[in-house]
Each structure stands twice: as structure tokens, then as C-alpha cells.
């Protein structure tokens, strides 16, 4: 009893300061955002007027807001699916794709795949501006134009722009999940695979019957992480896309609209209302993910 208590105090002692910083700099702004959402604050005055639910009413009648939500939804569904799928696939290849462990050169691949994660999002967006350019300077369109084909308007066509954003997001994110899944796979005892192999299981069976179930917790967490990344995408959209969310609003997402309303239109109250909605949407999303993916846990 005493030992447990001592351990408890020991842990609390370490956590108190970070928790305090967290409360002051993360939690309290949240609470404040809730308060600002009910005011008409313009961002500079020291007082604000309470306006009730006016911001929320205007928000739900705003077609831009619904467009943004729709774009977020697309990223939210496809982003995790593609990233986690690819991440799992690469991680499997790197850890147990070959005869003995990973495929040939897996150490090199590991570095290459993880590299984008080291770059800041803004740098990634700037890089992809050049990659996706529509003139001869574009990495993809340059050769295409050289071959006499029409350039593809990755960022300039409203039908393609959101997919380009998704592509960049996947490229940037996948490395992290490869490492995450590789580490988790490394924790699976080799004996289990050996006995499965003796029982005549092939690689696909081993993946779905052994690896995936044992990794389920990690997948769950990864899903939430990736979902949050898909909700954010601010830096990529703001730096990469034409007209910061264009063309013609085709890549607007909630985070860019929050920024625009607060810092361009000086509608801090309205922007905070958006933030509050975003908060609840993410909360619901996390609940749904944890609820949907709940399974019997396999303890090792």
C-alpha cells in the first residue's frame, strides 16, 4: 500500500510541472476559445460583447463552412486509409518481407521513407509547389510537356487540387507510420511466426492472422493521429494551393477558414466558433475510431 503510494507521489512529482504548463498554455486557451465564440471580438479591443449563439447560427448557414467540412471529411476518410495502409505494407516489407527479416536494402528504404517526416510541413509544401508546377519547370509536367502532352493542372484545376493536397499529405505522413508499425512489429516474438510457418501459413495469412491483430492497439492510436493530421493540413493548404484554399475554394478546410476569419477578416468570435465546432468534431471522430476499432486485446 505504502509502496504504491510512494510510487504515485513519485510520478506526480515528475508530472506536476508539465501538467501545469499544459493547463496554462493548452487547456486554458481552449476554454477561452469557447468564451470568445460567444462574443463579437475583433481581436484588438480589451472588451467584448456577448452575442449568444449568433456566431454559430451564422456558421451553420455559411456555405463556405460546409464546403470546408466536406473537404475535411474527404481527407479524414481517405488520408488514414491510404497512409495507414501504405505504412503497414511498407513496415511489413521492411520487417518480414524477405526470407530473413526485411526485404533487401530495407535499412536504406527505412531512411528514405522516413525522410519527409524530418522536413517541416512548410518546406514540404514549398517543395511540392515546384514538383506540381504546370509549366516546363514542374517535375511532373516538365517531362510531360517535353513529350508533347498537355500539362496537368495539379494545383490549378479545381477538380484535382484537393487530390494533390491529399497526395502531399500522404507522402509527408507515411514515413512516421512505417517507423511506428515497424517498431510494433519488432515487438512480436519471432517464435509465433516460426510456429505459424511450421503450420504452413503463407505470408499473407501471417500478416492478417498474426501481425495485424497484435498491432491493433498501435493501429488505433495511429488512426487518431492521422485523423488529426488530416483535420489540420493547414500548412500544406496555405502554402501549396493557389489563392490559399483555391482554386475557387476547392481546397478550403476548416483550419484555413479559421485562420482567414480570425486574422484576415478580424472576426475572432466567428473563428473561435469554428474552432469550437472543430473541437467537437475531432472529439466525436476520436470516440468513433476507438469505438469502431475496439477488439479483444491480445496480451503477450
Amino acid at each position: 500500500m505504502l509502496a504504491t503510494r510512494r510510487k504515485f507521489l513519485f510520478i506526480v512529482g515528475f508530472l506536476a510541472l508539465p501538467a501545469l504548463i499544459y493547463v496554462v498554455y493548452v487547456i486554458s486557451p481552449y476554454v477561452q476559445a469557447f468564451q470568445i465564440a460567444f462574443t463579437d471580438w475583433h481581436g484588438a479591443s480589451q472588451t467584448q460583447n456577448f452575442v449568444g449563439f449568433a456566431n454559430f447560427e451564422a456558421l451553420f448557414a455559411d456555405s463556405t463552412f460546409w464546403h470546408a467540412i466536406g473537404h475535411n471529411a474527404i481527407l479524414l476518410v481517405l488520408g488514414p486509409l491510404i497512409v495507414l495502409g501504405l505504412g503497414m505494407f511498407f513496415a511489413f516489407l521492411l520487417t518480414s518481407g524477405g526470407r530473413k527479416g526485411g526485404v533487401g536494402g530495407s535499412k536504406v528504404y527505412r531512411v528514405i521513407i522516413f525522410l519527409p517526416q524530418v522536413l517541416s510541413l512548410v518546406i514540404v509544401a514549398v517543395l511540392f509547389q515546384s514538383v506540381l508546377k504546370t509549366d516546363t519547370g514542374g517535375m511532373i509536367n516538365g517531362p510531360l510537356i517535353g513529350l508533347g502532352a498537355q500539362p496537368i493542372g495539379f494545383l490549378t484545376s479545381p477538380d484535382l487540387a484537393l487530390w494533390s493536397v491529399l497526395g502531399v499529405l500522404v507522402w509527408q505522413q507515411v514515413g512516421f507510420y512505417v517507423v511506428l508499425f515497424s517498431a510494433a512489429m519488432g515487438n512480436v516474438p519471432l517464435e509465433i511466426y516460426e510456429s505459424a510457418r511450421l503450420d504452413g501459413a503463407n505470408r499473407i495469412q501471417m500478416f492478417f492472422r498474426i501481425t495485424l491483430p497484435l498491432l491493433w492497439d498501435t493501429v488505433q492510436t495511429a488512426w487518431v493521429y492521422m485523423g488529426i493530421a488530416a483535420f489540420d493540413v493547414f500548412a500544406i493548404v496555405w502554402v501549396l494551393t493557389v489563392d490559399q484554399g483555391g482554386p475557387d475554394g476547392s481546397t478550403q478546410v476548416l483550419s484555413t477558414e479559421i485562420y482567414r476569419n480570425a486574422f484576415v477578416y478580424s472576426k475572432f468570435g466567428y473563428a473561435s466558433a469554428m474552432g469550437v465546432v472543430l473541437f467537437f468534431v475531432i472529439l466525436i471522430f476520436a470516440g468513433v475510431v476507438f469505438g469502431l476499432t475496439r477488439r479483444e486485446r491480445v496480451e503477450l
Binding site: Y22, Y25, V26, I27, P29, Y30, Q32, A33, I36, W41, Q46, Q48, D217, T218, Q220, T221, V224, Y225, I228, F231, D232, F234, S255, I258, Y259, A262, F268, A271, S272, M274, G275, V276, L278, F279, I282, L283, A286
Partner: peptide, 22 residues
């Protein structure tokens, strides 16, 4: 890990981080 995932969730940037000055 799950705990830190929730922490990450709460860390999504929301406007209004700065004080409104009272």
C-alpha cells in the same frame, strides 16, 4: 501511447490562444 494520442488530439490548434487582455 493512447494517452499521448489524446494529448495530441487536444493539441490541435484552435484560435484564441492569446489572452484577450482583461
Amino acid at each position: 501511447i493512447r494517452g499521448s494520442a489524446l494529448a495530441g488530439l487536444l493539441a490541435v490548434p484552435v484560435v484564441g490562444g492569446c489572452a484577450t487582455g482583461g
